[in-house]
């Protein structure tokens, strides 16, 4: 019952500060209309939440979130934004009312449900007495790998990770099927000649036939 209060006050302050920054960024995303600003703020949101993962001991998750959320998803969102539009249409005044009601009702119900949840950091909660802690205990004798996340990811839950890898592969495949393989830009630049990019070595004879991607 004393999980949070026993912990040092500095950690609690960092916690509150990070969650406050997340709130400010999320509200800014909700209010802004410039898509460029929204995309950049979502990158910041990911970066701040990566810091927060470090506070709750999830270093691997923090690493992934920093690489994926702040790096890759910002790049993908920017790429999509360049192909579509730069600003969102202003929404109508009364169109906000319905969503707001639904969101507030859902939030109140969820907060009511948290009364039954175990306290933060409780070592005897159902989550922390199940198979997760057992992995930590048997890991060294089983696999001899100090990082438990890696051994659970690769060994105990190898099937799961195989499925996730297949999902990533299929997502890449379906994006390529939807948008083309991206050889059009290569073909275009070679056709324009290499005077724009001075350092190209490709001769025009190497130009690939332009794919009809659209």
């Amino acid at each position: 019952m004393t999980g949070v209060l026993e912990g040092d006050i500095g950690m609690a302050l960092v916690n509150i500060l990070l969650l406050a920054v997340l709130f400010v960024v999320a509200i800014a995303i909700a209010r802004l209309r410039s898509l460029f600003a929204i995309v950049m703020l979502s990158g910041i949101y990911s970066l701040v939440s990566a810091t927060w993962y470090v506070v709750v001991d999830a270093v691997d998750v923090a690493f992934t979130e920093a690489a994926v959320g702040a790096g890759m998803s910002t790049i993908v969102l920017l790429g999509a934004m360049l192909l579509t539009s730069r600003t969102a249409k202003p929404d109508k005044k009364f169109a906000r009312l319905g969503p707001l009601l639904v969101v507030v009702a859902t939030g109140v119900m969820l907060i009511y449900a948290t009364v039954d949840l175990p306290a933060l950091g409780d070592p005897n909660s159902p989550v922390n007495t199940g198979v997760g802690m057992q992995y930590v205990q048997i890991n060294w004798a089983d696999t001899g790998i100090p990082n438990v996340v890696t051994s659970v990811l690769g060994s105990y839950r190898g099937f799961d990770t195989l499925g996730e890898t297949a999902v990533v592969f299929l997502a890449g495949l379906s994006v390529a099927l939807l948008l083309g393989f991206g050889e059009r830009s290569l073909a275009e630049s070679i056709r324009r000649g290499d005077k724009v990019h001075g350092r190209g070595k490709a001769a025009p004879s190497q130009a690939k036939p332009e794919e009809d991607a659209s």
């Binding site: 001991d57 270093v59 409780d122």
Partner: peptide
């Protein structure tokens, strides 16, 4: 999160 715990690297 476990109170007083650290990152799961033995």
């Amino acid at each position: 999160k476990v109170a007083g715990g650290t990152a799961p690297i033995l």
